[in-house]
């Protein structure tokens, strides 16, 4: 019972070449392929204890919304895909803005001192809005710093301009661009090792023109590639999604779009809805850590 060649991650042309010359099993290859060892190498095995220790040391992006952070076990986990879904106006974009800023705060006050990348697909990135939120956060930050008076840390460390500079904004108009961005990010991230957050707002908009199975395949591929980068460079991935109507034979109900197979790929799903002008409700629908919990909170406005 030998491992066949077609189980290796080889390009089609190479596979065909090997198979036409009747090299069907990996054991037949040996010297003819110098990188065979690499291709046959499985991922590293870790014990659950090692995984646990690593997770404890891994950070998370705090939202600075206490009930939300508590229910998430500290904040948005790094290396995972978290989705915010909700109807238009439910606060998804706003919370993304807030996270792009909070990730930049210095570590002593709970931030990660990192950069953020915002990939916008429906022109929702309103820089003036981000600036406003940044100003409010800065005001609070100044108060916080004064209260706790860390002597040698000055105001110059962080300010609104710096915050805006450390958010990289990319506008994509269709799904091919979205896929290209990920390829582009592979190299870009090597030059920007402090990126701690990548936001895609929204993931469903550019996939609208496609049909069901294509949407799943592309969303999957996108998240798969991004999550690989996320584990390598240690950043969090946030995506936003809309709500759509689904029909059963007797009734209709609301559900996040893109379907069940895509849902399977997410690590966390948080449903947002707006209750009043600044009060939001969040329901943790899927999480590695906790079962369904509902909380209410207000955002910095």
């Amino acid at each position: 019972m030998h491992q066949p060649v077609h189980s290796l991650s080889l390009p089609e042309c190479k596979l065909r070449e090997l198979q036409t010359s009747e090299f069907n099993y990996c054991k037949d290859l040996d010297a003819s392929m110098p990188y065979l060892d690499q291709l046959m190498k499985p991922p590293v095995t870790k014990t659950a204890l090692e995984v646990y220790n690593e997770e404890c040391q891994q950070g998370c992006v705090r939202t600075f919304v206490e009930p939300l952070d508590n229910v998430l076990g500290g904040g948005i986990p790094l290396g995972e895909v978290t989705e915010f879904c909700g109807e238009p106006g439910s606060g998804k974009t706003q919370i993304c803005f807030q996270l792009c800023i909070s990730v930049q705060l210095p570590t002593w006050c709970g931030g990660l001192n990192g950069e953020a990348v915002y990939i916008g697909t429906n022109c929702d990135f309103a820089s003036h809005r981000v600036k406003e939120i940044a100003k409010r956060i800065m005001d609070r930050y100044v108060l916080f710093e004064a209260k706790h008076s860390f002597g040698n840390i000055g105001l110059n460390e962080i300010n609104v301009e710096l915050i805006m500079e450390r958010i990289s904004y990319i506008n994509v108009s269709d799904y091919t661009q979205m896929l290209l961005i990920v390829t582009y990010l592979k190299d870009w991230l090597h030059d920007h090792p402090t990126v701690k957050l990548i936001v895609i707002d929204s993931i469903c908009a550019p996939l609208k023109p496609l049909d069901g199975s294509q949407r799943t395949t592309i969303a999957y591929q996108l998240l798969q590639d991004l999550q690989k980068l996320a584990k390598e460079h240690n950043f969090a991935i946030i995506v936003t999604n809309n709500i759509t109507t689904r029909f059963t034979c007797s009734s209709s109900y609301l559900a996040p779009s893109l379907g069940d197979n895509y849902y399977h790929r997410l690590n966390n799903r948080i449903y947002l809805c707006k209750k009043s002008s600044n009060v939001f409700k969040a329901v943790l629908l899927k999480s590695l850590f906790n079962s369904q919990t509902e909380i209410e909170f207000s955002l910095i406005s």
Binding site: P4, H6, Q19, N24
Partner: peptide, 8 residues
């Protein structure tokens, strides 16, 4: 399916 993939 294995046979089909093995030798195309």
């Amino acid at each position: 399916w294995q046979y089909r993939n093995l030798s195309d």
